[in-house]
């Protein structure tokens, strides 16, 4: 069962930063105010609103290709997992990730990347998200669920959906 943390494009993120706190705690980075604080999820504040940046778990991930020490590897379910013991801090993955989802931790000489918290039933960031921007979902069911939602709206003559695809 492939479980992934996904960021839904519902524009509801209000930048409360609760996910960042939860993530930093789970990773063992103490106080949020200290300069060495890191988290694997980040809320970027831009003109277009708040934008959570977290690992996309790409299936052909550029970071896996770029990793020099071979410490970033996909597991069987398609989660991209960093083995921090083997990370040497060459920042090749930081340079390759198009989403900017990997951060550097120069003090520990390792990267900081979301490892999907597979040891927990619910990832801490997902658990604290009140706006349901972050969800945890079985990816195999994700598209069928979307298709169902939109098919129902089609049959019921939802104008918005109908206009979107013109036919």
């Amino acid at each position: 069962m492939t479980r992934k943390i996904m960021v839904l494009p519902n524009g509801a993120c209000d930048g409360c930063d609760k996910c960042v706190d939860a993530c930093g705690q789970a990773l063992g980075y103490g106080s949020k105010d200290s300069e060495s604080y890191r988290a694997a999820i980040k809320i970027v504040n831009s003109e277009e609103g708040y934008f959570p940046v977290v690992c996309r778990n790409c299936h052909q991930a550029p970071c896996v290709t770029a990793c020099m020490s071979g410490c970033i590897q996909p597991d069987e379910d398609g989660h991209v997992i960093t083995d921090y013991d083997r990370c040497v801090g060459c920042w090749m993955c930081v340079m390759s990730c198009p989403f900017g989802a990997i951060e550097t931790d120069p003090q520990k000489h390792v990267t900081v990347k979301c490892n999907s918290c597979l040891d927990k039933s619910v990832a801490p960031c997902v658990a604290v998200c009140e706006k349901s921007v972050l969800i945890q979902i079985n990816i195999d069911e994700y598209t069928t669920r979307l298709r169902k939602n939109s098919a129902i709206r089609f049959i019921n003559g939802d104008r918005e959906v109908a206009q979107k695809c013109d036919t």
């Binding site: 996309r56 299936h59 052909q60 398609g78 598209t143």
Partner: peptide, 24 residues
Amino acid sequence: LCIGCMECFRACPFGAPQLGFDGK
């Protein structure tokens, strides 16, 4: 070119993108 990041899965309202066996 595809890296299988599934950004399109998030973006498509109709669930059209599918994940192939090659992870793309």
